[in-house]
Nucleic acid binder design. Structure first.
Lengths: 200, 200
DNA sequence: TGGTCTGTCTACCAGATGGTAGAGAGATGA
DNA sequence: TCATCTCTCTACCATCTGGTAGACAGACCA
Protein backbone atom coordinates (compact mmCIF):
# COMPACT_ATOMS: atom_id res chain seq x y z
CA UNK A 1 0.00 0.00 0.00
CA UNK A 2 1.50 3.26 -1.13
CA UNK A 3 1.34 5.82 1.63
CA UNK A 4 -0.03 9.27 0.98
CA UNK A 5 2.68 11.96 1.16
CA UNK A 6 2.57 14.33 4.12
CA UNK A 7 1.83 17.38 2.05
CA UNK A 8 -1.29 15.77 0.62
CA UNK A 9 -2.46 14.59 4.04
CA UNK A 10 -2.11 18.12 5.37
CA UNK A 11 -4.15 19.46 2.46
CA UNK A 12 -6.86 16.87 3.09
CA UNK A 13 -7.09 17.52 6.79
CA UNK A 14 -7.06 21.27 6.27
CA UNK A 15 -9.84 21.06 3.69
CA UNK A 16 -12.03 19.09 6.08
CA UNK A 17 -11.50 21.36 9.04
CA UNK A 18 -11.62 24.64 7.15
CA UNK A 19 -14.74 23.59 5.30
CA UNK A 20 -16.64 22.39 8.34
CA UNK A 21 -15.55 24.82 11.05
CA UNK A 22 -14.31 27.82 9.14
CA UNK A 23 -10.80 28.97 8.30
CA UNK A 24 -10.35 31.38 11.18
CA UNK A 25 -11.60 28.88 13.72
CA UNK A 26 -9.07 26.17 12.85
CA UNK A 27 -5.50 26.39 14.18
CA UNK A 28 -2.39 24.94 12.59
CA UNK A 29 -1.94 22.81 15.71
CA UNK A 30 -5.30 21.17 15.16
CA UNK A 31 -4.53 20.38 11.56
CA UNK A 32 -1.13 18.99 12.55
CA UNK A 33 -2.72 16.83 15.21
CA UNK A 34 -5.25 15.46 12.71
CA UNK A 35 -2.38 14.53 10.40
CA UNK A 36 -0.32 13.04 13.22
CA UNK A 37 2.55 15.47 12.93
CA UNK A 38 3.84 18.65 14.59
CA UNK A 39 2.79 22.13 13.71
CA UNK A 40 6.28 22.92 12.42
CA UNK A 41 5.93 20.18 9.83
CA UNK A 42 2.84 21.90 8.53
CA UNK A 43 4.80 25.14 8.37
CA UNK A 44 7.56 23.34 6.53
CA UNK A 45 5.22 22.36 3.70
CA UNK A 46 3.23 25.59 3.70
CA UNK A 47 5.21 28.61 4.81
CA UNK A 48 2.22 30.26 6.50
CA UNK A 49 -1.41 29.63 7.30
CA UNK A 50 -2.40 31.92 4.45
CA UNK A 51 -0.35 29.84 2.03
CA UNK A 52 -2.11 26.71 3.28
CA UNK A 53 -5.51 28.31 2.81
CA UNK A 54 -4.55 29.33 -0.71
CA UNK A 55 -3.40 25.83 -1.58
CA UNK A 56 -6.58 24.28 -0.22
CA UNK A 57 -8.78 26.71 -2.12
CA UNK A 58 -6.85 26.00 -5.29
CA UNK A 59 -7.29 22.23 -5.06
CA UNK A 60 -10.98 22.51 -4.25
CA UNK A 61 -11.63 24.88 -7.11
CA UNK A 62 -9.73 22.71 -9.55
CA UNK A 63 -11.55 19.58 -8.40
CA UNK A 64 -14.99 21.17 -8.65
CA UNK A 65 -14.30 22.59 -12.09
CA UNK A 66 -13.23 19.17 -13.37
CA UNK A 67 -16.27 17.37 -11.93
CA UNK A 68 -18.74 19.92 -13.26
CA UNK A 69 -17.07 20.12 -16.66
CA UNK A 70 -17.23 16.37 -17.06
CA UNK A 71 -20.88 16.28 -16.06
CA UNK A 72 -21.81 19.00 -18.53
CA UNK A 73 -20.00 17.26 -21.36
CA UNK A 74 -21.52 13.85 -20.60
CA UNK A 75 -25.16 15.03 -20.70
CA UNK A 76 -27.49 15.36 -23.66
CA UNK A 77 -28.31 18.63 -25.34
CA UNK A 78 -31.38 19.42 -23.21
CA UNK A 79 -30.57 22.07 -20.58
CA UNK A 80 -32.69 20.47 -17.86
CA UNK A 81 -30.80 17.24 -18.46
CA UNK A 82 -27.50 19.07 -18.23
CA UNK A 83 -28.40 20.72 -14.95
CA UNK A 84 -29.59 17.39 -13.72
CA UNK A 85 -26.26 15.82 -14.62
CA UNK A 86 -24.35 18.52 -12.75
CA UNK A 87 -26.49 18.07 -9.65
CA UNK A 88 -25.99 14.31 -9.72
CA UNK A 89 -22.24 14.75 -10.17
CA UNK A 90 -21.84 17.30 -7.40
CA UNK A 91 -24.31 15.80 -4.99
CA UNK A 92 -22.51 12.66 -3.96
CA UNK A 93 -19.10 14.17 -3.11
CA UNK A 94 -20.77 17.22 -1.59
CA UNK A 95 -23.04 15.37 0.83
CA UNK A 96 -20.39 12.82 1.71
CA UNK A 97 -17.92 15.55 2.42
CA UNK A 98 -19.75 18.72 3.45
CA UNK A 99 -16.40 20.44 3.81
CA UNK A 100 -16.13 20.67 0.04
CA UNK A 101 -18.98 23.06 -0.60
CA UNK A 102 -18.59 24.34 2.95
CA UNK A 103 -15.26 25.74 1.92
CA UNK A 104 -16.72 27.39 -1.15
CA UNK A 105 -19.22 29.06 1.17
CA UNK A 106 -16.40 30.08 3.42
CA UNK A 107 -15.28 32.48 0.71
CA UNK A 108 -17.65 35.19 1.88
CA UNK A 109 -15.73 35.37 5.16
CA UNK A 110 -12.27 35.33 3.63
CA UNK A 111 -10.10 38.40 3.17
CA UNK A 112 -10.63 39.93 -0.25
CA UNK A 113 -7.33 38.72 -1.72
CA UNK A 114 -8.11 35.07 -1.13
CA UNK A 115 -11.71 35.42 -2.18
CA UNK A 116 -10.51 36.98 -5.42
CA UNK A 117 -8.15 34.13 -6.12
CA UNK A 118 -10.88 31.55 -5.75
CA UNK A 119 -13.26 33.60 -7.84
CA UNK A 120 -10.63 33.81 -10.53
CA UNK A 121 -10.68 30.02 -10.76
CA UNK A 122 -14.42 29.64 -10.86
CA UNK A 123 -15.35 32.73 -12.85
CA UNK A 124 -14.96 31.18 -16.33
CA UNK A 125 -17.28 28.36 -15.30
CA UNK A 126 -19.83 30.85 -14.00
CA UNK A 127 -19.65 32.98 -17.12
CA UNK A 128 -20.10 30.00 -19.39
CA UNK A 129 -23.02 28.81 -17.31
CA UNK A 130 -24.76 32.19 -17.42
CA UNK A 131 -24.23 32.53 -21.16
CA UNK A 132 -25.54 29.05 -21.74
CA UNK A 133 -28.63 29.69 -19.67
CA UNK A 134 -29.35 32.93 -21.51
CA UNK A 135 -29.15 31.06 -24.79
CA UNK A 136 -31.49 28.30 -23.68
CA UNK A 137 -33.95 30.85 -22.35
CA UNK A 138 -34.02 32.39 -25.79
CA UNK A 139 -34.75 29.00 -27.24
CA UNK A 140 -37.60 28.61 -24.78
CA UNK A 141 -36.10 25.58 -23.12
CA UNK A 142 -35.60 27.28 -19.77
CA UNK A 143 -37.98 29.56 -17.88
CA UNK A 144 -37.26 33.15 -18.90
CA UNK A 145 -35.57 35.07 -16.08
CA UNK A 146 -32.32 36.83 -15.22
CA UNK A 147 -29.79 34.11 -16.09
CA UNK A 148 -27.19 35.32 -13.61
CA UNK A 149 -29.57 35.37 -10.68
CA UNK A 150 -31.08 32.05 -11.70
CA UNK A 151 -27.61 30.52 -11.66
CA UNK A 152 -26.97 32.04 -8.24
CA UNK A 153 -30.28 30.78 -6.90
CA UNK A 154 -29.69 27.26 -8.17
CA UNK A 155 -26.24 27.33 -6.66
CA UNK A 156 -27.63 28.57 -3.34
CA UNK A 157 -30.16 25.77 -3.24
CA UNK A 158 -27.67 23.00 -3.91
CA UNK A 159 -24.95 24.35 -1.65
CA UNK A 160 -27.34 25.19 1.15
CA UNK A 161 -28.92 21.78 1.27
CA UNK A 162 -25.54 20.03 1.09
CA UNK A 163 -23.83 22.08 3.80
CA UNK A 164 -26.54 22.29 6.40
CA UNK A 165 -27.25 18.84 7.77
CA UNK A 166 -28.79 20.55 10.80
CA UNK A 167 -31.68 21.79 8.73
CA UNK A 168 -32.32 18.36 7.35
CA UNK A 169 -32.36 16.98 10.86
CA UNK A 170 -34.99 19.53 11.79
CA UNK A 171 -37.33 18.08 9.17
CA UNK A 172 -36.58 14.57 10.39
CA UNK A 173 -34.50 13.43 7.47
CA UNK A 174 -32.37 10.27 7.77
CA UNK A 175 -28.75 10.07 6.64
CA UNK A 176 -28.92 6.54 5.27
CA UNK A 177 -28.65 5.45 1.65
CA UNK A 178 -32.38 5.61 1.04
CA UNK A 179 -32.53 9.08 2.58
CA UNK A 180 -29.68 10.26 0.41
CA UNK A 181 -31.26 9.09 -2.82
CA UNK A 182 -34.57 10.53 -1.74
CA UNK A 183 -32.97 13.90 -1.01
CA UNK A 184 -31.11 13.89 -4.31
CA UNK A 185 -34.29 13.16 -6.24
CA UNK A 186 -36.26 15.86 -4.43
CA UNK A 187 -33.49 18.33 -5.12
CA UNK A 188 -33.52 17.44 -8.81
CA UNK A 189 -37.30 17.76 -9.03
CA UNK A 190 -37.17 21.08 -7.18
CA UNK A 191 -34.61 22.56 -9.54
CA UNK A 192 -36.35 21.15 -12.58
CA UNK A 193 -39.62 22.79 -11.55
CA UNK A 194 -37.86 26.05 -10.77
CA UNK A 195 -36.05 26.18 -14.10
CA UNK A 196 -38.41 24.57 -16.61
CA UNK A 197 -40.36 26.86 -18.92
CA UNK A 198 -44.05 27.04 -18.02
CA UNK A 199 -46.03 24.33 -19.78
CA UNK A 200 -48.08 25.90 -22.54
CA UNK B 1 -32.66 60.66 22.57
CA UNK B 2 -32.79 57.59 24.75
CA UNK B 3 -29.52 55.69 24.67
CA UNK B 4 -29.45 51.97 24.11
CA UNK B 5 -28.38 50.04 27.21
CA UNK B 6 -24.96 48.39 27.17
CA UNK B 7 -26.30 44.87 27.30
CA UNK B 8 -28.35 45.43 24.18
CA UNK B 9 -25.45 47.02 22.33
CA UNK B 10 -23.28 44.03 23.17
CA UNK B 11 -25.94 41.68 21.85
CA UNK B 12 -26.21 43.68 18.64
CA UNK B 13 -22.49 43.81 18.00
CA UNK B 14 -22.09 40.12 18.83
CA UNK B 15 -24.89 39.16 16.44
CA UNK B 16 -23.26 41.07 13.60
CA UNK B 17 -19.82 39.67 14.13
CA UNK B 18 -20.86 36.10 14.92
CA UNK B 19 -23.19 36.02 11.95
CA UNK B 20 -20.72 37.39 9.45
CA UNK B 21 -17.42 35.92 10.59
CA UNK B 22 -18.44 32.90 12.63
CA UNK B 23 -18.66 32.42 16.38
CA UNK B 24 -15.27 30.83 16.88
CA UNK B 25 -13.51 33.48 14.83
CA UNK B 26 -14.76 36.42 16.89
CA UNK B 27 -13.09 37.33 20.19
CA UNK B 28 -14.68 39.04 23.17
CA UNK B 29 -12.15 41.82 22.76
CA UNK B 30 -13.38 42.54 19.24
CA UNK B 31 -16.99 42.67 20.36
CA UNK B 32 -16.06 44.94 23.25
CA UNK B 33 -14.14 47.22 20.92
CA UNK B 34 -17.10 47.43 18.56
CA UNK B 35 -19.31 48.45 21.47
CA UNK B 36 -16.75 50.93 22.80
CA UNK B 37 -16.23 49.20 26.10
CA UNK B 38 -13.73 46.83 27.76
CA UNK B 39 -13.84 43.08 27.49
CA UNK B 40 -14.57 42.82 31.21
CA UNK B 41 -17.75 44.78 30.73
CA UNK B 42 -18.87 42.19 28.23
CA UNK B 43 -18.04 39.50 30.77
CA UNK B 44 -20.01 41.41 33.38
CA UNK B 45 -23.20 41.22 31.31
CA UNK B 46 -22.60 37.73 29.99
CA UNK B 47 -20.58 35.54 32.35
CA UNK B 48 -18.84 33.69 29.51
CA UNK B 49 -18.57 33.66 25.73
CA UNK B 50 -20.87 30.63 25.64
CA UNK B 51 -23.51 32.52 27.58
CA UNK B 52 -23.24 35.40 25.11
CA UNK B 53 -23.63 33.04 22.17
CA UNK B 54 -26.69 31.52 23.79
CA UNK B 55 -28.25 34.91 24.36
CA UNK B 56 -27.61 36.00 20.78
CA UNK B 57 -29.10 32.80 19.39
CA UNK B 58 -32.12 33.24 21.58
CA UNK B 59 -32.83 36.77 20.42
CA UNK B 60 -32.33 35.90 16.75
CA UNK B 61 -34.61 32.91 16.97
CA UNK B 62 -37.30 34.91 18.74
CA UNK B 63 -37.07 37.74 16.23
CA UNK B 64 -37.28 35.45 13.21
CA UNK B 65 -40.22 33.55 14.63
CA UNK B 66 -42.12 36.78 15.21
CA UNK B 67 -41.42 38.13 11.71
CA UNK B 68 -42.36 34.90 9.97
CA UNK B 69 -45.44 34.39 12.10
CA UNK B 70 -46.70 37.86 11.29
CA UNK B 71 -46.10 37.37 7.57
CA UNK B 72 -47.97 34.07 7.52
CA UNK B 73 -50.94 35.59 9.35
CA UNK B 74 -51.09 38.64 7.10
CA UNK B 75 -51.29 36.72 3.82
CA UNK B 76 -54.33 35.30 2.04
CA UNK B 77 -55.30 31.66 2.10
CA UNK B 78 -53.34 30.67 -1.03
CA UNK B 79 -50.12 28.82 -0.10
CA UNK B 80 -48.04 30.44 -2.84
CA UNK B 81 -49.14 33.84 -1.56
CA UNK B 82 -48.23 32.86 1.98
CA UNK B 83 -44.76 31.72 0.98
CA UNK B 84 -44.40 34.89 -0.99
CA UNK B 85 -45.32 36.94 2.05
CA UNK B 86 -42.73 35.14 4.17
CA UNK B 87 -40.03 35.71 1.58
CA UNK B 88 -40.87 39.40 1.35
CA UNK B 89 -40.88 39.68 5.15
CA UNK B 90 -37.58 37.88 5.63
CA UNK B 91 -35.83 39.27 2.60
CA UNK B 92 -35.39 42.87 3.62
CA UNK B 93 -33.89 42.34 7.08
CA UNK B 94 -31.87 39.36 5.83
CA UNK B 95 -30.17 41.14 2.95
CA UNK B 96 -29.68 44.34 4.90
CA UNK B 97 -28.14 42.43 7.73
CA UNK B 98 -26.57 39.21 6.43
CA UNK B 99 -25.52 38.36 9.96
CA UNK B 100 -29.08 37.42 10.77
CA UNK B 101 -29.42 34.38 8.55
CA UNK B 102 -25.65 33.97 8.69
CA UNK B 103 -26.01 33.17 12.35
CA UNK B 104 -28.74 30.64 11.67
CA UNK B 105 -26.37 28.99 9.23
CA UNK B 106 -23.67 29.09 11.85
CA UNK B 107 -25.64 26.51 13.79
CA UNK B 108 -24.12 23.63 11.88
CA UNK B 109 -20.71 24.54 13.29
CA UNK B 110 -21.88 25.03 16.87
CA UNK B 111 -21.41 22.48 19.63
CA UNK B 112 -24.42 20.19 19.88
CA UNK B 113 -25.80 21.74 23.06
CA UNK B 114 -26.14 25.19 21.52
CA UNK B 115 -27.44 23.87 18.22
CA UNK B 116 -30.11 21.98 20.14
CA UNK B 117 -31.20 25.05 22.00
CA UNK B 118 -31.69 27.00 18.80
CA UNK B 119 -33.48 24.12 17.16
CA UNK B 120 -35.79 23.93 20.15
CA UNK B 121 -36.88 27.51 19.43
CA UNK B 122 -37.45 27.05 15.73
CA UNK B 123 -38.78 23.50 15.69
CA UNK B 124 -42.46 24.38 16.28
CA UNK B 125 -42.33 26.77 13.34
CA UNK B 126 -40.76 24.11 11.14
CA UNK B 127 -43.29 21.50 12.17
CA UNK B 128 -46.21 23.80 11.47
CA UNK B 129 -44.73 24.71 8.11
CA UNK B 130 -44.26 21.07 7.09
CA UNK B 131 -47.76 20.12 8.19
CA UNK B 132 -49.22 23.05 6.32
CA UNK B 133 -47.36 22.17 3.15
CA UNK B 134 -48.49 18.55 3.34
CA UNK B 135 -52.06 19.73 3.63
CA UNK B 136 -51.81 22.07 0.66
CA UNK B 137 -50.18 19.36 -1.42
CA UNK B 138 -53.19 17.17 -0.70
CA UNK B 139 -55.43 19.98 -1.88
CA UNK B 140 -53.39 20.20 -5.07
CA UNK B 141 -52.33 23.78 -4.44
CA UNK B 142 -48.63 22.90 -4.07
CA UNK B 143 -46.52 20.59 -6.19
CA UNK B 144 -46.65 17.12 -4.64
CA UNK B 145 -43.34 16.21 -3.01
CA UNK B 146 -41.81 15.41 0.37
CA UNK B 147 -43.01 18.41 2.41
CA UNK B 148 -40.09 18.31 4.83
CA UNK B 149 -37.47 18.32 2.11
CA UNK B 150 -39.34 20.97 0.15
CA UNK B 151 -39.30 23.19 3.22
CA UNK B 152 -35.59 22.54 3.66
CA UNK B 153 -34.88 23.30 0.00
CA UNK B 154 -36.83 26.53 0.05
CA UNK B 155 -35.01 27.53 3.22
CA UNK B 156 -31.65 26.68 1.64
CA UNK B 157 -32.42 28.83 -1.38
CA UNK B 158 -33.44 31.88 0.60
CA UNK B 159 -30.69 31.62 3.18
CA UNK B 160 -28.02 30.85 0.63
CA UNK B 161 -28.84 33.79 -1.59
CA UNK B 162 -29.06 36.17 1.36
CA UNK B 163 -25.82 35.13 3.02
CA UNK B 164 -23.49 34.86 0.07
CA UNK B 165 -22.98 38.24 -1.50
CA UNK B 166 -19.81 36.87 -3.09
CA UNK B 167 -21.83 34.63 -5.34
CA UNK B 168 -24.00 37.51 -6.44
CA UNK B 169 -20.90 39.51 -7.25
CA UNK B 170 -19.66 36.63 -9.41
CA UNK B 171 -22.76 37.00 -11.60
CA UNK B 172 -22.27 40.72 -11.72
CA UNK B 173 -25.16 41.75 -9.53
CA UNK B 174 -25.36 45.28 -8.11
CA UNK B 175 -26.15 46.06 -4.48
CA UNK B 176 -28.28 49.12 -5.13
CA UNK B 177 -32.00 49.52 -4.58
CA UNK B 178 -32.91 48.41 -8.08
CA UNK B 179 -30.68 45.37 -7.76
CA UNK B 180 -32.26 44.47 -4.46
CA UNK B 181 -35.80 44.60 -5.77
CA UNK B 182 -34.76 42.69 -8.85
CA UNK B 183 -33.16 39.98 -6.73
CA UNK B 184 -36.19 39.75 -4.49
CA UNK B 185 -38.51 39.36 -7.43
CA UNK B 186 -36.36 36.71 -9.08
CA UNK B 187 -36.22 34.82 -5.79
CA UNK B 188 -40.00 34.95 -5.49
CA UNK B 189 -40.48 33.77 -9.06
CA UNK B 190 -37.94 30.98 -8.55
CA UNK B 191 -39.67 29.67 -5.45
CA UNK B 192 -43.10 30.04 -6.99
CA UNK B 193 -42.04 27.96 -9.98
CA UNK B 194 -40.40 25.37 -7.75
CA UNK B 195 -43.43 24.99 -5.50
CA UNK B 196 -46.43 25.52 -7.77
CA UNK B 197 -48.37 22.47 -8.88
CA UNK B 198 -47.82 21.64 -12.56
CA UNK B 199 -50.32 23.45 -14.79
CA UNK B 200 -52.88 20.94 -16.03
C1' DT C 1 34.68 8.84 3.74
C1' DG C 2 32.47 13.26 4.15
C1' DG C 3 29.06 16.64 2.56
C1' DT C 4 24.70 18.15 1.26
C1' DC C 5 19.68 17.77 0.96
C1' DT C 6 15.14 16.44 2.85
C1' DG C 7 11.86 16.09 6.28
C1' DT C 8 10.62 16.15 11.02
C1' DC C 9 11.52 17.49 15.28
C1' DT C 10 12.36 20.54 20.07
C1' DA C 11 12.77 25.04 21.91
C1' DC C 12 11.31 29.42 21.77
C1' DC C 13 8.71 34.01 21.13
C1' DA C 14 5.41 37.96 21.10
C1' DG C 15 0.85 38.69 21.01
C1' DA C 16 -4.02 37.30 21.54
C1' DT C 17 -7.55 34.45 23.97
C1' DG C 18 -11.18 33.49 27.60
C1' DG C 19 -11.51 34.30 32.27
C1' DT C 20 -10.61 35.83 37.57
C1' DA C 21 -10.01 39.29 41.30
C1' DG C 22 -11.03 43.18 42.88
C1' DA C 23 -10.70 48.52 42.82
C1' DG C 24 -13.36 52.63 42.29
C1' DA C 25 -17.03 55.86 40.78
C1' DG C 26 -21.61 57.14 40.96
C1' DA C 27 -26.48 56.54 42.27
C1' DT C 28 -29.90 55.17 45.85
C1' DG C 29 -31.84 54.70 50.19
C1' DA C 30 -31.56 54.50 55.57
C1' DT D 1 -23.78 60.50 56.77
C1' DC D 2 -22.89 56.03 55.75
C1' DA D 3 -23.82 51.66 53.53
C1' DT D 4 -25.16 49.23 49.65
C1' DC D 5 -25.87 48.37 44.86
C1' DT D 6 -24.74 48.86 39.90
C1' DC D 7 -21.65 49.29 36.47
C1' DT D 8 -17.16 49.79 34.33
C1' DC D 9 -12.68 49.69 34.92
C1' DT D 10 -7.25 48.07 35.67
C1' DA D 11 -4.31 44.34 36.67
C1' DC D 12 -3.47 39.77 36.12
C1' DC D 13 -3.23 34.73 34.53
C1' DA D 14 -2.72 30.26 32.01
C1' DT D 15 -3.27 28.78 27.60
C1' DC D 16 -3.23 29.03 22.75
C1' DT D 17 -1.95 31.53 18.36
C1' DG D 18 1.03 31.84 14.00
C1' DG D 19 5.73 31.95 13.27
C1' DT D 20 11.29 31.73 13.77
C1' DA D 21 15.72 29.33 14.70
C1' DG D 22 17.99 25.67 14.52
C1' DA D 23 19.12 20.61 16.02
C1' DC D 24 19.11 15.99 14.28
C1' DA D 25 18.48 11.74 11.61
C1' DG D 26 18.38 9.49 7.38
C1' DA D 27 18.94 9.37 2.23
C1' DC D 28 21.70 10.52 -1.65
C1' DC D 29 26.04 11.56 -3.82
C1' DA D 30 30.98 12.68 -4.44
Amino acid sequence: MAEIPTRQRILDAALDQFGVRGVEAVSLDEIARAVGVRKQTVLYWFPSKDALVDAVLETVAAELVVVIDAAVRSATDDPLERIDAVVRAVFRPAVRRPALLGLVREVSRLPAAQADRLRHHVQPLVDRCVEYMALEMDKGRLRRADPGLIAALAYATVTGIATEPEVLRAVDWRTNVVGLRHLRDELRAFLRAALAPPAE
